[in-house]
């Protein structure tokens, strides 16, 4: 049990997927101009990441890895080179499905999250989490925890940045630094803050 808590803390704080691995920067900069949009995007990423990472694990475990297709009577097939295209297909399919289900089951939730879901298919935080899951050979339970943790870490960072940017609206920034430039420098400062966690050994 403690192993999973360690992994969770590690993926949220110590190895924050955005501030340490730089994944999902584009939607991070694009959606952080308003706090409510940032919160919506954060929830959507947490959800999709928690669902997609284990789904990708299953696809890898039962189809792509060497010997994964043993249940179908082909034990020597090695399809690992298809990981890239299969993972992105899984993510695109899951986001599409989620969008359809949420629209049917809970229209108010759909109104909140609906516009963010299509954006997520090309958010590299999700694909990156799945690649890390593959590279570090996580088990099923670990991949659920890691997917949830990295999504949460990403959401935390985007909500924090959006509130800082709101405050920035009142300050007089040099013209050409406005927007992308200053957001990048603030993210650097946030990353420095998160570096404090890197001394923690779990």
């Amino acid at each position: 049990m403690i192993h999973y808590i360690d992994l969770l803390v590690k993926s949220i704080f110590i190895e924050n997927i955005l501030l340490i691995y730089f994944l999902g920067m584009c939607s991070f900069l694009g959606c952080s101009k308003r706090t409510d949009a940032a919160i919506g995007m954060g929830w959507a990423v947490i959800f999709i990441s928690t669902v997609c990472t284990p789904t990708c694990w299953a696809v890898k475990h039962f189809f792509l890895r060497k010997g994964g297709l043993a249940w179908a009577g082909i034990p020597n097939l090695d399809l690992t080179f298809l990981i890239f295209i299969m993972f992105i297909a899984v993510i695109a399919a899951v986001t599409q499905l989620t969008e359809m289900i949420v629209e049917k089951v809970s229209p108010p939730l759909y109104n909140k999250l609906g516009i963010f879901l299509p954006l997520i298919a090309v958010n590299c935080a999700i694909l990156g989490a799945s690649f890390f899951m593959d590279q570090r050979n996580y088990t099923l339970a670990e991949s659920v925890v890691f997917g949830f943790g990295s999504g949460t870490g990403w959401a935390l960072a985007i909500v924090a940045l959006s509130t800082i940017r709101k405050k920035l609206g009142y300050s007089n920034i040099p013209g050409s630094l406005r927007g992308g430039g200053i957001a990048m420098i603030i993210t650097g400062l946030m990353a420095m803050g998160f570096m404090c966690f890197s001394g923690i050994n779990l």
Binding site: P174, M184, M195
Partner: peptide, 13 residues
């Protein structure tokens, strides 16, 4: 990572 953010921010500027 912070160094990367700073350098890129300055380059954008």
């Amino acid at each position: 990572s912070p160094g990367a953010f700073f350098v890129l921010g300055l380059i954008v500027w």
